[in-house]
Design a protein around this nucleic acid. Structure first.
Lengths: 196, 196
DNA sequence: CCCTTTCACATACCGTCGGTATGTCAAGTA
DNA sequence: TACTTGACATACCGACGGTATGTGAAAGGG
């Protein structure tokens, strides 16, 4: 183990993921061919199919990577806050900021559901990100900070709102102003669920 | 005009749109081939390319049809209400209900942005549906019913929330209960923007 | 140290797909 | 009736995703 063999293997795999991610981001899953990816990674299709089961499988692993990075950034930002309510706000804001990156947009928000199907995409998002949102909301209900109500539909509404807002923000002509406005509106939405 | 020629033409076109819509709904844009579509429509590829510029163009016209139907149902439901605030609520609720249909899900919500790109998808949605949401919100601000604030970010947040909620509802094990819960949460979100 | 096995690829190939160029024949027109 | 137009059908092409097989270097045992 850990010899020349496995090191080279890991590098090839990482190169394929990196170039795949770059090309999927730039031109979209449908229009980029495997030939381009393996050329950019300076390997052949044999190598790609040795590491991944299919084009869709490569995309799935790329998506997993992107989701992991977003989740990590959101978690890091949220955990910097002490108050649970502030953690929720900080997490949402961090998600909004992170999701305006081109690779997150195209891979995670646009192509993801279409390539893998909405159900699988949802399951992956749940495991990476949405779970934390559900946990945060549940915790705040137990604390009495927000009024008790079914968590899932609320989480989906908020998640969908943030996804669409991020896509809109990425194409905005006045990103700073629009981000402020969107955040203001989102914050008011969240505020609406605080117990009175 | 209006002879045998143009009547046959219109029928062929409508058949292609109908079968394309059905297959795109059942199996998704990426996995259905033109050969299947033309076989189902009982014509050849020559006919398809005589009516549409490409596979993507056929999809675009199918999407336009779906969006038009959703918009019409929403508008009809909303217009049945007299009070502007009630019109907004009724419209949102009608959108939520209409968007759980399989063809709306797959074509409008999942494949649409990926196939045409988010920007074009957004523009089409704007022209068909979102425009009414913006108009309703603007009108309510002018009436003083909801507090003045930038309309666009709010509209995007609400639109995204409803889209994601609809996708979630479609796969729900308890559709009635979940629809009620989702609507309850969405209504509270809307309520949050009423002037105090 | 050598022989064997393993494995991380490379090469060659296949069926299918979206797209196009061209042919055809009936409906329209003068 | 002679001619034109148009709504397709037919035949074909390059490119794509996927697979079967070959290969040479690294790992492992005696």
């Amino acid at each position: 183990m850990d010899g020349v063999r496995s090191r080279q293997r890991e590098q090839t795999r990482r190169t394929l993921l990196r170039e795949g991610r770059r090309l999927f981001t730039e031109r979209g899953y449908g229009t980029v061919g495997l030939a381009e990816i393996v050329a950019a990674a300076d390997v052949t299709k044999g190598a790609l199919y040795h590491h991944f089961e299919s084009k869709g499988d490569l995309f799935r692993e790329v998506l997993r990577e992107v989701q992991g990075e977003v989740a990590a950034r959101v978690a890091a930002t949220a955990d910097a806050e002490d108050d649970p309510w502030d953690r929720l706000l900080a997490g949402c804001r961090a998600f909004l900021a992170a999701s305006t990156a081109p690779d997150v947009q195209r891979i995670m928000l646009v192509d993801g559901p279409a390539v893998l199907g909405w159900a699988e995409w949802r399951a992956m998002d749940e495991a990476a990100s949405a779970r934390h949102l559900v946990d945060a909301l549940t915790g705040l209900m137990e604390l009495g900070t927000i009024a008790p109500r079914p968590v899932e539909p609320l989480a989906h509404l908020l998640s969908g709102a943030m996804n669409e807002a991020a896509l809109w923000l990425a194409g905005s002509a006045h990103p700073d102003r629009d981000l402020d406005d969107a955040w203001s509106a989102l914050a008011r939405m969240l505020e609406a669920f605080r117990a009175r």
